[in-house]
């Protein structure tokens, strides 16, 4: 009697342990994966944003100025040769942040972006333009108008 009782209780305890452990594991892993599926996780977020940055490639092909004051604008031809659509969020010319609304450059496309010029540009002088994308890639080029 005594040994039979003990045996049953061990089996029940083992089964209970297994059920509790499996349930805990399932809940824990699901929660963990859900948490890290976003870009909030520290280590995985760093790797994920780094790889997204690597897949986003754009190049400045050509720049030219068009229009007369006050509608003068700089046109920049941007080519996306990467594997992700690129969103250009900021444009900086000679350390001055330009007023510019974000524009998407689709994969494999060449897009002309228009940057309204707030100040007069000196001609035949080298200027530096930097494009900053949503994924924090910075592409710079030198140009003259």
């Amino acid at each position: 009697m005594k040994s039979a009782k003990r045996g049953v209780s061990e089996v029940v305890a083992t089964l209970a342990l297994l059920v509790i452990t499996l349930a805990a594991m399932a809940i824990y892993i699901q929660g963990f994966n859900l948490y890290y599926s976003g870009e909030t996780g520290l280590l995985s977020g760093i790797f994920r944003s780094g790889s997204e940055q690597n897949y986003e490639r754009i190049s400045i092909v050509y720049t030219f100025k068009n229009g007369t004051e006050p509608n003068e604008a700089l046109y920049v031809l941007v080519c996306n040769y990467g594997a992700r659509d690129a969103t250009i969020e900021r444009v900086i010319i000679d350390t001055v942040v330009q007023s510019y609304s974000p524009q998407v450059v689709p994969v494999g496309e060449v897009t002309a972006i228009r940057i309204p010029l707030s100040s007069t540009f000196s001609e035949n002088v080298a200027h530096v333009i930097s494009l900053i994308t949503e994924r924090n890639n910075v592409i710079s080029a030198e140009f003259r108008v």
């Binding site: 805990a24 594991m25 824990y28 892993i29 963990f32 994966n33 890290y36 996780g41 280590l43 995985s44 790797f47 994920r48 780094g50 790889s51 997204e52 690597n54 897949y55 490639r57 594997a83």
Partner: peptide, 24 residues
């Protein structure tokens, strides 16, 4: 479980980062 989950997820992200660096 906690340790293996962390290691598995970070390893997966790291391997995808290495692939992207290779692509680049």
């Amino acid at each position: 479980v906690a340790l293996t989950s962390i290691i598995a997820i970070v390893a997966a992200e790291y391997s995808s980062y290495v692939r992207s660096a290779d692509y680049l």
